[in-house]
Simulated scan of single mutants.
Amino acid sequence: MTQLPPLPDLILEPLIRAALMEDLGTYGDITTRTVIPAGTRYRAQLRARAPGVVSGMQIAEIAFGLVDPQLKVSCHCPDGSTIAAGDLLMEIEGSAASILSGERVALNFAGRLSGIATLTAAFVAEAAGTDTRITCTRKTTPGLRLVEKQAVLHGGGFNHRFSLSDAILIKDNHIAVAGGIRPVLRAVKAGASHMIRTEIEVDRLDQLAEVLDEGGADVVLLDNMDTPTLREAVAMAAGRITLEASGNMRLERIAEVAATGVDYISSGALTHSAQTLDLGLDF
C-alpha cells in the first residue's frame, strides 16, 4: 500500500521500552532462563498467517534490538507492504533467549498495527475512483496514538489531528456552551492564530448554511448525516469549503458516501475496531 520514511527510532523507543518493561516484569523472563541453556543460538521467522497490509515492522525490529543489540534482524516486508498468508516478514538470528523474551511485545505491536493498516486499506479501496480521502480520528488506544496513526498511513489513509492542540475543532458541545454557530466562529476570527486551521461540526443543512454565510471555518464536519443529505451538503458548499463526513461510517457505507463528493471520510473504527492481523513467530 503506502511505504513511508520510518519515524526516528528515538521517538518510538520509549513506547517500546515501556512495553518490554511491562512484559519482563521485575525479574525478567524466568521461563526462558530456566529451560533454555545459556548460549543457545537460533533463527526465528516472523510470518503472516493471514493476508493484509503490514505495519509495526520497524517497532518489532526496535523491540528485539532493545532486548539484545547483538540480534541480527532482517526485515523482508517493510511497513506498508501488502502481504499474503505465509509471507516471510522478518528473520531474527542470535540468542534464542533474547528472541523469546522480545517475541510477545514485537508480535503485539505488529499484529495490532497491521490490523489497523489492513482495515484502513479496505476503507481506501471502497473510496477508489473518487477524490475522497479516508482519515482516522482521536479514538485511539491511550499511549499508542502515534503508532496507530502511522498504521493508518501505512494502509493508505490520512491522519486527522493528533491532539487537542493541533487545530480548532468546534463540536456540538462547544456550540451549545458558546451560544451558537455565529458566536463560536466570531470568537475564532477574533482570537485564533492565523497559523491554526478551524473545523466546525454541523448535523443539519441549516447549520451548514449558517457556517457558509458567517465564514471563519476551513472545514465543516458533517456529522451523522444520511447519504442524500450529504449529497445536498456538497451541492450547497459548491467547493467553497472542505467537507468531512463523519459518524456511522461503516465499511459498507464508504463507497456511497465517497460518491457524494465529500473531501474526507473520518472513521474512529480504523483504530478502535480493527481486528489484529494474525502473525506468528516460528523457530
Results as ranks from 00 to 15, higher is better:
108 N>L: 00
227 T>Y: 01
149 K>D: 00
116 I>E: 03
155 G>S: 14
150 Q>I: 01
113 L>R: 07
134 I>V: 10
171 K>D: 01
207 Q>F: 02
187 A>F: 12
105 V>S: 00
225 M>V: 06
188 V>S: 13
164 L>K: 14
200 I>F: 09
164 L>N: 12
132 T>F: 08
206 D>N: 13
232 E>S: 15
131 D>H: 15
241 I>S: 08
173 N>Y: 01
108 N>D: 13
180 G>D: 05
138 R>K: 12
221 L>N: 13
167 A>P: 05
226 D>R: 14
223 D>R: 05
178 A>D: 01
185 L>I: 06
176 A>Q: 13
120 T>F: 03
149 K>F: 03
110 A>T: 15
167 A>R: 13
117 A>C: 07
127 A>G: 14
184 V>G: 14
148 E>L: 04
138 R>I: 04
196 I>V: 15
220 V>S: 08
228 P>Q: 12
174 H>I: 05
145 R>P: 00
244 E>L: 04
105 V>E: 02
164 L>C: 11
113 L>A: 06
205 L>N: 05
124 V>R: 11
218 D>F: 12
220 V>F: 01
166 D>L: 07
191 G>F: 15
237 A>Q: 06
195 M>R: 14
211 V>N: 04
114 S>I: 06
161 R>Q: 08
239 G>F: 13
160 H>N: 09
185 L>H: 01
207 Q>G: 06
202 V>H: 09
174 H>T: 09
120 T>M: 11
184 V>K: 09
208 L>Q: 08
203 D>S: 15
212 L>S: 07
143 G>N: 04
185 L>T: 08
183 P>V: 11
154 H>R: 09
132 T>Q: 11
114 S>G: 10
123 F>R: 12
171 K>Q: 00
193 S>W: 07
191 G>Q: 14
179 G>V: 02
164 L>R: 11
201 E>I: 04
217 A>T: 06
154 H>W: 06
152 V>A: 02
208 L>I: 12
153 L>E: 00
172 D>N: 06
216 G>N: 14
